[in-house]
Amino acid sequence: MVNLAVLGAQLAFLVPVAVIILVTVVLAWVVGLLVGRLTQRTSPHMAGAARRLAVIVVALIGGTLALQALGVSPDILLLVVALLGATALIALRDPLGNYGAKYFSDIYTPFKVGDTIQVGAYSGKVIEINPMATVLLSDKEQLISLPNAALLRDVVTNTSPQAWKEVTVPVTLPGSVDLPAFESELLKSLSKLRMRLDPRFPPVVTTKARSPQSTELAVTLMLRRPEDRDAITSETNKRLGEVLEQVRGARR
């Protein structure tokens, strides 16, 4: 027969571990929420990444403390993780650079497929933007593949007519979100900005890609004044986040 008193004494050391895990979970949730609030004027893409990063950092700290409470030295573990990370970064430096550049160019670079751009000595119509490179079709019908990292390093000139007018904000919707309701509420929300937008071009929501897990959309707005670009992008991102929460809330 098991002696409960002995078993309790043997398991007592787990109590601090459980407390640490519990506190970590709560803290991760609170930090995620705070970071979400702080980043609501950036794109939902960016805000989501920031939230995930903050949660991972809290989880790592909590995990390290929990290991210490168990009497395991976390030094070796941290060293292995750090070495693996450094090796991966060195080995995948170029692709990761391009991928990262694509990630940021999605959000901040003012061109899209169909535009004509000039980057250094190269110019042409953008026909593809993939995780590694942006592909241009030149006037001589040559394909030019520009590593995405180059687009962050070099000056990019969008030579499409009235390119300054257009702001395209990407948004990824989880598959669980009701797209028709989201679009409808978003159009209502964005119509409040119409004094700042070209009255001939109401906002347009375009489906870029879809899978059972998510739908990638692009919200296109046309500015009335070029100097409003940054403010409109920021405001649109804020409204995207609000509408997303609203539609999710209505579903719950």
Partner: peptide
């Protein structure tokens, strides 16, 4: 003039999107 900015238009978009989703 302001039809495509109106609240009613968001419902037109809703109906069309609902239809497109079913077709998809």
């Amino acid at each position: 003039d302001e039809l495509f900015w109106s609240e009613a238009f968001s419902e037109y978009a809703y109906y069309n999107r609902r239809t497109a989703e079913l077709i998809q």
